[in-house]
Computed example of a mutant assay.
Amino acid sequence: MNTRSFAIRLLLAAALVLAGLVFAYPLLFMFTASFKPADAIFANIANPAALLPDAHWSLVNYRNVFDKSAVGRYLLNSTAIALITIVAGVFVNSALAFAIAKLKWRGRHGVLALVLALLIVPMDVLAIPMMLVVAHLPWFDVQQGGLVFGWLDTLHVQIMPFVANAFCVFLFHQAFKDLPDELIEAARMDGAGAMTIYLRIVLPLCKPTVATASIVIFLGMWNQYLWPVMTVQTGGARPVMVGLQQFFGRTNQWGEIMAYASLITLPVLVFFLVIQKHFVRSVVGSGIKG
């Protein structure tokens, strides 16, 4: 490696580190502020030393968050909603994409066109009609031991309408379309059916796409606000974002607000770190294909 090449790589590494610090600073400030009293948060905000632990740090803000709100329950609700939607959504969306991309049947191009058309329809347009529908749908209530009508104030009302995702269908369709047809035909010659090909061959080959779809679904469900506000009125099924808005009305202490924000941000970071390897592969693969 010559001197010029080494200097270019060094400058590139320095630029990446600087960009990383710029993007990470707001998160670092939020986490550090969550351990400080209100008067100490903005005292030396321009000093990078404000991010380092000092004598002001304590867990008081986190204790106050749990005392003033049911954040633990909200975190559990949002986690269940997001994870169930991911599992169901990956299966449903990828199955439809596989049927469109690799199975021969009349009308599949029209279905794909309908999926693409749904991409431009905003949630704000669908919210009221969807609420009118779910308010009268039947559901078997285990506690009551019978059939009840209306999904309001439940967890499944925040899950079922969002399992099917037009963007994820399109994402999987593009991934499946690039798989060689010879692979599918070879499996059929060995006696494999469509479901076997989908579950054992096609889906395992598209793990990066599964990771990308999981992130898209997770972020969408974790950040849900409008739909839960419309359909959930009790705290038993309330997600974290609605709980955050209510928490704003109970405190004006920035340390407590930062603590609440940190609690609802950590699961997102952990989830991304768990599947980042496959997500990076998806991004790199898309760049190579382009």
Rank of each mutant, 00 (worst) to 15 (best):
L112N: 12
P208S: 04
Q174H: 08
L171H: 13
V202T: 07
R188C: 01
V115E: 11
H156F: 07
L116Q: 08
K207C: 01
L119C: 04
F176M: 02
P122Q: 10
G110K: 04
Q143V: 14
P180L: 07
E185H: 13
M189Y: 09
K102Q: 06
A164L: 14
V125I: 14
A211Y: 02
V142Q: 12
L171K: 12
W105P: 00
Q174W: 08
Q174F: 03
A194R: 00
A175T: 02
V169Y: 05
P122N: 12
A113T: 13
D141H: 05
H156A: 00
H109Y: 11
L171I: 07
P138R: 13
G191L: 06
G150K: 12
F172D: 02
V115R: 07
M195V: 15
G150F: 05
A186K: 08
I159L: 00
A135T: 11
V115A: 09
M123Y: 07
V157C: 03
V133S: 06
F172K: 03
L137I: 11
R200Q: 14
Q174N: 14
L205W: 05
R188Y: 01
R106A: 12
V202A: 05
V163D: 01
C206L: 10
P208E: 06
D153E: 03
P161I: 08
A117D: 05
L199Q: 13
G110M: 09
M195G: 10
K104R: 14
T196I: 12
P161Q: 09
D124S: 13
E182S: 15
A192K: 12
A113D: 06
K104P: 00
K207G: 05
H173G: 08
D190I: 10
A166R: 07
A186V: 09
F162Q: 04
T154A: 00
H109L: 10
L118S: 07
C206Y: 05
M123L: 05
D181K: 01
L112Q: 12
L118I: 04
L203D: 12
L114M: 13
G146Y: 06
V111M: 10
E185P: 09
F170K: 13
A164D: 03
A101D: 02
F162G: 04
K102S: 07
L103A: 00
T212I: 13
V125T: 12
V121H: 06
A166Y: 09
M195W: 15
F167C: 01
M160W: 15
Y198G: 00
I159N: 00
A166T: 11
R188V: 02
V142E: 14
V115G: 09
P122M: 09
I120A: 11
A127D: 11
D181I: 06
F162N: 06
D178L: 07
L199Y: 05
V157K: 04
F140K: 10
R200D: 14
C206A: 09
F170M: 13
P122L: 09
P180T: 06
G110H: 09
P204R: 01
F170Y: 15
M123E: 11
T196Q: 14
F140N: 10
G107Y: 09
P204W: 00
L112K: 11
H173F: 15
A117P: 06
F167G: 03
D124V: 10
I120Y: 08
K177I: 02
Q144R: 15
L103S: 00
V163I: 15
W151P: 01
K104F: 00
L112C: 10
D181L: 05
V121D: 12
I184S: 07
L137M: 15
P129Y: 05
D153V: 02
Q143M: 15
F167P: 02
L126N: 01
